[in-house]
Every structure is written in C-alpha cells, then in structure tokens.
Measured scan of single mutants.
Amino acid sequence: MAAAAAAGAGPEMVRGQVFDVGPRYTNLSYIGEGAYGMVCSAYDNVNKVRVAIKKISPFEHQTYCQRTLREIKILLRFRHENIIGINDIIRAPTIEQMKDVYIVQDLMETDLYKLLKTQHLSNDHICYFLYQILRGLKYIHSANVLHRDLKPSNLLLNTTCDLKICDFGLARVADPDHDHTGFLTEYVATRWYRAPEIMLNSKGYTKSIDIWSVGCILAEMLSNRPIFPGKHYLDQLNHILGILGSPSQEDLNCIINLKARNYLLSLPHKNKVPWNRLFPNADSKALDLLDKMLTFNPHKRIEVEQALAHPYLEQYYDPSDEPIAEAPFKFDMELDDLPKEKLKELIFEETARFQPGYRS
C-alpha cells in the first residue's frame, strides 16, 4: 500500500510507478496490472468513496492506442447498470505532455475469474450472474457493438453480487458484411471463450460470437473449470467437437473457408456428449439454455433477447427493466489503419471533457 500523499506533496508512487492523480484522489492501494497499465484503488475526496484507477501508458504502440481509444469512446457513450462506466479521466493539459491516461471507475471487490478459483456457486448465484451478463449484453448488442472478449476476468463483482462487464478494448461495431482481413492475426481474445466460426472463417462476425462466450462462462460457473481449455488453435476446435459432436452437413455448409471445411470433413465422426453427463448436478433449465448458447452453427445460436426470456431466468426476466441503447454506435473511421500519432490526438480530444474549465 502506498503511503497517503500529504496535501501538495506531488504524485504518489505505487510499486515504483508514478500515479499522478492528486489532489482529488489519494490513499492509493495496488490492485493489479494488465498488459499496459496498473490498477489501484484510491480515495475520492470529492465523492467520499474509494474508486478504481487504471493507469494506461499506450502511446508507444499502435495496438494499445487503438484499444484505449475504443474503450474510452464506447464506455463514455454507454450507460447501463451492468456495464462499468467511466467516472473521470485524468491526463496532462497538453498533448505533448500526455504520456499516461488515468481512467477512474467504480471500485468492484472482485471478478468472476477470482471468485470461481475459490468458491463453488449455488444455482441461485449462477442464475443471477447469468441474468446480469445477458442484461448488459442486450444493451451492448442493441448499440450494434460486439464485445468480443467476454470471459470471467472481464466480469466485475461486488459483495452485493452486482455484476458489471468491463474491458471493451477489443470491441467492434457489428459488421457481418465487412471482410476484416487479418482478423485472426489481430484477434487476441482469450482462445477458450472463442466461437468456432472465428477459427473457421475470417469473413465478418456477428453478435452470436458473444453468446458463445457467455455459454462458455455459464459452463464454467457450473463446474469451476473452463469447458474448452484448448492449448492452441486446432486443439481448441477438437475440444469443442469432442463435446458438441461432429457438425451436420448443414452446419458445414455455413463454413465459407474450404480449407477449414475440408479439415472438419477429414475428422472421424464424434457423438455429442449429453450435458447432464458433463454437469450431473446442474439445473435442467440451465443445461437447456447452455445447449442453445453453445450451438456450433452461429445462425442457430440463441440471441440475447431470447436467452433473457428463457425459463431458467424467469424469476428475473423483465423486458421493461432491460434497457437498450438510445442509438446504434458508430465509429467515424476504422481505427485499425491509423498511425499511433493520430490515435493519440483522438484520445486527447475524447478525454477533453474531463479537463478543468472544459467548454463543449
């Protein structure tokens, strides 16, 4: 834990890192770190609560700039109880001085990944967590956004079992017609939660990839272990087919990539493993919904509104309290091709509203 900075004593240090967030945020305490930044909790002297502050230093890398800009653009436009918001952003007053960006968010005690390492969940908890994931996802999908990296560590939890989806750095506007060349190379989302079509096709992607990830998360809540822990690309596919069985001819016809289709045709026939054999203690309604989410063919996979209306979630289902976005989200430009200098300018502009004396 960093010592509390005395008023006016300059930035606090946390594990050798400068955290320049005073005077409003003090009493910093280390939480963890990701690929390009550290997260601390801090005391907000204005709202009198502890908050989470993520320090991001992305400006050396085009990919990190892209992810940072995506996350900020999306989260500043989203407003939903099951999606983490941005409360404040701290950065230098000029673009030349801006080396880091500090993002202030609600402090959540833990995440689903940490929880599943230590606790076996009751059916009631599984049901409530799944409902909140789908409630947040309904809003995301209504904005025409794909999260693309749903996994237990991106689901934040607090002691009252509130759940918030975080990390929109890989999110995209849904565009089933656009052929994202190089899709697989830039697709760094965790393999275990990846839909089979991501490994088999490169053309376009749809909201059904997020539903697949939610199915993987439900299976993990039922058993405290990942359902498809593939060691590499082909191993991942083999794990999936080992449980779902061989795809039907109709399902194979959806695979545009001939090499991928021929690979699947070359494999020995596998039978589907019954879900109640894998999860003998699970609620039968939970397994019915799991089956509809972990469907090989993305066109037959359940959609988020149908999933919310499934009998497993009937005690929570309330369409009048499951809000959607006001308007579909649009990125003005494809960020993939922009140089990091341009992305830095866009991050600077996007964060201006939090600067003292800002006038829109």
Rank of each mutant, 00 (worst) to 15 (best):
I126T: 05
I83Q: 02
A189R: 10
E303A: 06
G245S: 08
G32Y: 04
T94S: 15
P319G: 10
E322G: 02
L289G: 04
S202Q: 13
R77W: 11
Y316M: 09
F348M: 13
G136H: 00
P229W: 04
A260H: 00
E197W: 07
T185Y: 07
S246Y: 00
G10Y: 12
L218C: 11
G230D: 14
V304L: 10
G8M: 01
V101I: 11
R194F: 10
S248D: 05
N47L: 12
Y317S: 10
L343Q: 15
L222D: 09
K164W: 08
R77I: 02
V304M: 12
Q62I: 11
Y25R: 11
G169M: 05
S208I: 02
I347M: 12
L290Q: 14
N224Y: 15
E314Y: 01
S266C: 15
N253A: 04
H232T: 01
E197K: 14
S41T: 10
P23T: 13
T295W: 07
A260K: 06
L200C: 09
D283T: 01
P93S: 12
A309E: 04
K272M: 09
P323A: 05
K300Y: 08
N224M: 09
I217E: 10
I133T: 00
L28C: 10
S248L: 10
I165Q: 10
A352D: 13
D106N: 13
V173H: 07
I95L: 13
A5C: 13
P298L: 09
E71D: 13
K54I: 12
R359N: 02
L290S: 06
P226W: 07
L69M: 15
V273W: 01
S248C: 09
L335M: 13
R359D: 12
N87F: 03
M38R: 09
T351W: 03
M293Q: 07
I227H: 07
R91W: 01
R50Y: 06
I95V: 08
N262G: 05
Q66C: 12
M38W: 07
T118G: 09
Y316D: 06
N257R: 12
L265H: 02
G204I: 11
R91P: 01
L241N: 04
H120A: 08
A7K: 02
L76E: 01
S153W: 07
K73V: 13
N257M: 09
D44T: 01
C166F: 14
A2M: 13
P311W: 00
L115G: 01
C65K: 01
K342F: 01
L265G: 03
S266W: 01
N281W: 07
T190P: 11
E81A: 10
D179R: 12
K138V: 12
Y263G: 03
K340L: 07
I140M: 09
E341S: 05
N262W: 04
E60R: 11
L294R: 00
Y30M: 05
Y64G: 09
T160A: 10
H180K: 08
Y128G: 07
D291S: 03
D177T: 04
T63H: 09
A307Q: 03
Y358E: 13
Y128T: 03
T94K: 08
I302D: 08
L170W: 05
R148K: 12
K231R: 04
D288F: 05
L130H: 05
N27Y: 15
A92H: 00
R191N: 07
I227C: 09
D167M: 01
P280W: 11
V39L: 13
M38F: 09
M13W: 12
R70Y: 02
K344W: 02
E305A: 13
A352S: 13
G242K: 06
I209S: 10
S360I: 13
N201W: 07
C166R: 12
F168W: 09
I84H: 04
N82P: 10
E305H: 01
N271R: 12
T295A: 08
Q97V: 06
V46W: 12
I198V: 13
E96V: 12
V18Y: 05
I83P: 00
M98E: 06
Q132K: 15
N45C: 12
T181V: 08
K48R: 13
G136P: 01
T206R: 11
N281R: 08
L252M: 14
C254Q: 07
D321F: 05
F329I: 15
K292I: 07
P328S: 11
L237R: 04
F183D: 08
G242P: 07
K73H: 10
D175F: 07
A325G: 03
I89H: 01
N297M: 09
D332A: 10
E186H: 08
L163F: 05
D149R: 09
F19N: 13
K259H: 02
F129H: 04
N262K: 15
H180L: 15
Q105H: 14
A5P: 02
K207L: 11
S153V: 06
L163A: 06
H232I: 00
S142F: 05
F78C: 10
L116H: 06
A260C: 00
D210M: 12
H141A: 05
K270F: 09
Q97R: 09
L134N: 06
D124F: 05
L290A: 09
L308P: 04
Y139N: 15
E345D: 15
H147P: 05
A5Q: 13
K340Y: 09
A35V: 10
K203T: 09
N144A: 03
R353G: 12
I217P: 09
T110S: 15
H310N: 15
T118P: 14
N87M: 04
L294V: 05
I140E: 11
T181F: 10
I95Q: 06
V104M: 08
A52C: 07
V145G: 07
D167H: 05
P280E: 12
Q97H: 15
K231W: 00
T26F: 13
I126H: 07
F354P: 02
Y187V: 08
R359M: 14
G230W: 02
I53M: 14
P58H: 14
I209P: 08
H310F: 01
N123P: 04
M38G: 09
L76H: 01
P280L: 12
K54G: 07
R359H: 11
P339R: 12
H299L: 15
E12D: 15
N238H: 14
G10N: 07
E12M: 05
S142R: 05
K55F: 06
E341K: 14
Q315E: 03
S57G: 07
H269K: 11
P58D: 01
V273C: 04
L343W: 02
H310Q: 13
E334N: 11
D318N: 15
T159V: 13
R50C: 06
I227P: 02
L75W: 01
T351P: 11
I198C: 08
R70L: 14
P328W: 03
Y64Q: 06
D235G: 03
D175K: 10
S122C: 14
Y139T: 05
V304I: 09
P226T: 14
L308S: 02
T94D: 04
M98F: 11
I198A: 02
K99L: 00
A3Q: 04
V104D: 13
I256E: 11
Q62A: 10
K114N: 15
N271V: 06
L170T: 04
L294Y: 06
A219N: 08
L338V: 03
N238Y: 14
I209T: 04
Y64F: 15
K99F: 03
N82L: 13
D336A: 11
A143K: 09
D337A: 13
L258Q: 15
R353K: 13
F78G: 10
R225G: 05
S266G: 15
D44P: 03
P247G: 00
Q119S: 02
L75G: 04
T63V: 06
R225M: 03
T160R: 13
T190M: 04
T110C: 13
Q236V: 06
K231F: 06
H61T: 02
F19L: 15
E322K: 14
V51I: 11
K330T: 02
I84A: 02
E220I: 07
M108S: 03
I83E: 00
V214T: 11
F348Q: 12
R261H: 07
R91K: 01
S57Q: 03
L234G: 12
D175M: 11
S142K: 04
Y316I: 01
D149Q: 10
P268A: 02
L170K: 07
T190K: 08
P58V: 03
F19M: 11
Y131I: 02
H269R: 10
C65R: 08
N47G: 12
T181Q: 12
L222M: 13
T110P: 14
F59G: 04
S248Y: 14
A171V: 07
L244A: 01
M108W: 03
D337V: 13
E197C: 08
C65W: 02
P339T: 14
P298H: 15
R172K: 10
K151N: 12
K114E: 13
I133C: 05
G85D: 13
L130S: 08
Y193D: 11
F279H: 00
I90Y: 01
N27D: 09
H178W: 10
P176R: 12
E96N: 02
I217D: 06
M293V: 01
G357H: 04
Y205D: 12
H141F: 07
D44Y: 15
N158F: 08
K54V: 13
G34R: 14
V304R: 11
H120L: 15
I31T: 00
